[in-house]
Every structure is written in C-alpha cells, then in structure tokens.
Design a protein around this nucleic acid. Structure first.
Lengths: 212, 212
DNA sequence: TAGATTGTTAATCGATTAACAATC
DNA sequence: TAGATTGTTAATCGATTAACAATC
C-alpha cells in the first residue's frame, strides 16, 4: 500500500525494463488486467518474485483483482524515469556509434540522440539520420552550451576511459559504455555507468555451447 | 587441484569473460604473475570470490605464488570455448546487423561472420565488409550446406521469434538475440539463447539517474 | 626455512520462494 | 457473500565472504 521506495537491489532493477516491455506489449494487445500469477507465466518468473519486486516501490495491485495493465505500465514507466526526456550524445561515430544514431526505437521513450563526436576528419561534418558528427575537440564547448543527460561511448577501448573522464569533468551523469573495458568512476561520484560489453555476451554463448 | 568441472552458476559464467578481458590486457602489458588479491583489486571483486570462481574449473594457481597470467588466460580461453572456431550468420542487415558485420573485434577470438540475411530486396546482393547479404528465403538451404554455430538475430522484434524457430529447426544451437523480445525455446532443447536487450540496459541508466 | 598464497570448508549475507492474513 | 489475489512476513536457497590448513 505504501508508495514509499525501499532499497532496490541490482537484480530487481534489471527486471524493471523487462516488466515494462511485457506490459507495453500486453497493453498494445488490449489486455486490461493481469494477476501476478499470469504475468509470472508469461515472463518465466515466479508470482512471488513479481509481487516482491513491485513492493519495492509500493503496491500497485488490488486484492482479488490483480493489476491493471495500463496503470502498472505507467507506474513502471515513471520508475524507470521515462517520463523525463533524455538527451544523448554519442562519442565515436564508427560501427556501433552509427548504429545507435540510426536506431529510432529509443525515441518513443524519450531518449533523443543529439549528435555524435569523432576524431576522424572524414566523418566530421557528416550526419547520421540528421544528427551531425562534430569534432571531438568541440566536446567541452558543446557540453557547456547544451544540456546532455547521457553519453554513449563507442570509441576504441584504448580511448574509452579518457573520454569518460572528459565527460564527467563536464557534468555528464550517465555513461553508456560500449567499449570493451570497464569504465572506472570515482565512487564518491554520482555518475552512473552501464558497461554493455557485447563480446562478453557472445563469449557466454560459446561457453555454454562447449561447456555441457 | 582437481581439473574436474563443478556446477557453474550463471553469476560465475558471467564473470568468466571479464576475467578473460583483464588477463588478456595484463598479458599484453607483460605481467607474468598475479595473486587473487591483486586481481581482485584490479577487477573490483574479492580475492575469495576469484578463488571460488576458478575452483569451479579446477585450481589453476600455486600456493605461495599465485597464478601465472598467460597460463590462466589460456585456461579461461579454453573454458570459454574460444579455442574452437565459431561461424556466425546475421539475420537482419539493418543498423545492428550491419554494425556487427563491420565489427572485427570478435575475429581474433575465432568468431567469424559468414554472411547476412535480409528480406529487403534493396539490401539483398550487397555485401558488408565482404560478407554477402542473402535473401532470407535462402536461409534453410544455406544452413543445410554450411556449418553455422551461432546466429545473431537483428530483425524487428515482430519477426524475431519466428526467425528463431526457423533457425532451430535447421540445427542452430546458439542464438544471439538483439531484438527487443525474449526468444523462447523449448527447454527440452539444447539451444543456447542470449538476449542482449540494449534498451533494457539504457533504461537502467535513466532508472538510476532519476531514482536516487 | 619462513612467507605468501592457494584450495576449500564454514559462516554470513542477500535474494528467491512459500505461506497466509488482509481485503477487494 | 465467497473466491481470488494481493502485500508482507517467514523459510529456504544460493551466492559471497571469511577463515585456515595445506603447500609452494
């Protein structure tokens, strides 16, 4: 019942976007009501875990009824911070940087790519889906003049940490790192880092394929 | 001491590629020896955890000495299955599919992109870094004639499950899924699925930025 | 040898699951 | 009202950490 926010573990946090995904699909499919039991079957979790998870944020359900899909989706939307607009810049306009810039899927949830930065003169001045590629030398000026919430690091791994430090020094609070290193931030700092590590993910497949 | 393989939890599995990354870097930097304590400091883990992790696979260290970096790296290389070549096909030659095809970083570890498949006539016949884009209708024939270990699904989310089923029916054992749905496989099946979900990862950033 | 550090067992901590009273 | 299903407490399970004998 309480609408107070308890401690949220890493595990719970990682499930929230998944709930959001399933609820969005269900709302689109016209489903109005769902019980923790039914949701658990769809998502491959236990009903108990789902109720525990939601109760980190205060109960959203009703005894005897379950959860209203739209309402629950809306709550999780807010929990994930998707009611706010987030502007993104991309550092490194190579493969991954360009792919992110081209991808439109995040926009519906308020994530807007503003521009890219690169060191390569052949790329500087070009644009991807209308987003300009600027010289990395202009990074600091850009950050002073524009409010940017999240920076995606898509540089070679050798440059990633250095870039992160420039970003942090200029007020960036969210880093989405695609380079194959773990970005280190001073832990007195309030900077959020999400390391993606696509190759780690690929290697777990080959691990499992050869392991059993 | 034993070289026998114990049960490996999901958590341990996910740390293995990280060990591999750090050890590769250390080997490149010419470091010969490392103790669990020093490795723990570099990686932000506890020494205890590192020793526990390695002991799932049999001890690789030596009392009083620690671990030989090259040797340990080599063992983890094998554990991850990186001593075998893995051929990859990419389904969907859009942003992400093309980015994966262009990326050369996996090749040094034996992951080789063979070709892409798409439904779009404008893309079919083109090639990305020398990898041809075939008509998705040719998927079954291709799989019959070529040994493919891993398929990366980079289609729109509506098509992902259907594509996965075609792949599995034709013998694919590893699926690397970039579409924003959870691929479901019959769990009597020996198919490994790794769901990447980039947007989930982005949403955890905005969650953490607005949460505290 | 003495010091260092492993491999491994035991203790702790946290996350998941089960149970059930509250209540719609 | 009776049935269903939540919110929440208690029990279980598994993962992490601590401790230490073995040994290089």
């Amino acid at each position: 019942m309480a609408r107070e926010r308890n401690y949220v573990s890493e595990a719970v946090m990682r499930r929230m976007p998944k709930y959001y995904r399933y609820l969005t699909d269900m709302e689109k499919a016209g489903i109005e009501r769902v019980s923790s039991k039914e949701l658990s079957q769809r998502m491959g979790l236990t009903a108990s875990q789902i109720r525990q998870d939601f109760n980190c944020f205060g109960g959203f359900g009703q005894q005897g009824y379950g959860y209203n899909v739209s309402e629950l989706r809306h709550e999780i939307h807010k929990i994930l911070g998707l009611h706010k607009k987030h502007s993104i810049i991309i550092i490194g306009a190579g493969n991954i940087g360009q792919a992110l810039a081209n991808y439109t899927g995040f926009e519906k949830d308020g994530f807007l790519v503003k521009c890219l930065f690169d060191i390569n003169p052949r790329l500087i001045g070009m644009s991807i889906r209308g987003k300009p590629i600027y010289d990395i030398d202009e990074l600091e000026d850009y950050l002073k003049e524009n409010q940017v919430h999240i920076a995606a690091i898509c540089t070679p791994k050798e440059k990633a940490q250095e870039v992160a430090e420039r970003l942090i020094k200029n007020g960036i609070k969210g880093i989405w790192n695609f380079a194959a290193v773990d970005i280190v931030v001073p832990n007195n700092n309030d900077v959020i880092v999400e390391n993606v590590h696509l190759s780690d993910s690929l290697y777990t497949i080959s691990f499992q394929m050869s392991g059993e």
